[in-house]
Simulated assay, not measured.
Amino acid sequence: MFTVSPATPDQLDDLVTLLGQRRFFAEKLDAQSRALGVLLVGRLDGRPVGDVWVSFSPAPEAQVNEFLPGVPMLVHLEVISVLRNRGFGTSLIGAAEELVRSRGHERITLGVGIENPDARRLYERLGYAEWAHGTIATGYYWVGDDGARQWFPETITMLVKSLR
């Protein structure tokens, strides 16, 4: 049985065992404790198999804050590779949309890398549409469990969905 629910701090080790990324999950759980977002975890028979961060804080990109102020953002949707294309990612997105809607928001957004057409097709199939403001040159830092920090540049397109 597949379920989606917010992560709790006591689940950190389980998340890391299956999905890795200790620092990412620790940071998101800390941010969740400060009401900056919600880390939703998809579980299959009780074991974590995917996640998505629902951010309620300002985006790191100025253009997003200018054109989509206050719009919650989906970040870091992932499902373990052996379980992809089975509807789990769609279920995680649906749970995220319901969370956002339950908090009174009428739209949701996400950035998708221009080099990730498979993800874009999924989002478009679920009703997300490209915004009219072009691409954004951005990136992210990845901090390994050893503490090494590496910058990964990325060009993204913002997709937006009405939740009405």
Score class of each variant (00 low, 15 high):
residue 50 G to C: 10
residue 53 W to I: 04
residue 73 M to H: 06
residue 60 P to E: 13
residue 48 P to C: 10
residue 90 T to K: 15
residue 63 Q to K: 13
residue 54 V to A: 02
residue 78 E to V: 10
residue 74 L to R: 06
residue 64 V to I: 15
residue 3 T to L: 06
residue 49 V to Y: 00
residue 62 A to H: 07
residue 84 R to F: 13
residue 41 V to W: 00
residue 79 V to A: 06
residue 93 I to R: 05
residue 74 L to E: 04
residue 64 V to W: 12
residue 10 D to K: 11
residue 36 L to A: 11
residue 72 P to T: 14
residue 21 Q to V: 02
residue 25 F to D: 02
residue 19 L to K: 10
residue 29 L to N: 04
residue 87 G to I: 04
residue 64 V to H: 02
residue 78 E to W: 02
residue 50 G to H: 07
residue 82 V to A: 13
residue 14 D to W: 02
residue 81 S to V: 06
residue 91 S to M: 12
residue 38 V to H: 01
residue 79 V to G: 04
residue 45 D to T: 02
residue 62 A to N: 05
residue 9 P to L: 12
residue 9 P to R: 07
residue 67 F to H: 15
residue 50 G to F: 05
residue 80 I to P: 03
residue 85 N to A: 15
residue 74 L to C: 13
residue 51 D to V: 06
residue 93 I to D: 01
residue 56 F to Q: 10
residue 42 G to D: 05
residue 49 V to Q: 00
residue 62 A to M: 08
residue 60 P to M: 01
residue 37 G to Y: 07
residue 32 Q to I: 12
residue 6 P to L: 10
residue 45 D to I: 01
residue 59 A to F: 02
residue 79 V to S: 03
residue 45 D to H: 02
residue 2 F to P: 15
residue 68 L to T: 01
residue 85 N to P: 01
residue 52 V to C: 11
residue 13 D to M: 04
residue 87 G to Y: 12
residue 26 A to S: 13
residue 19 L to T: 08
residue 29 L to I: 12
residue 29 L to T: 07
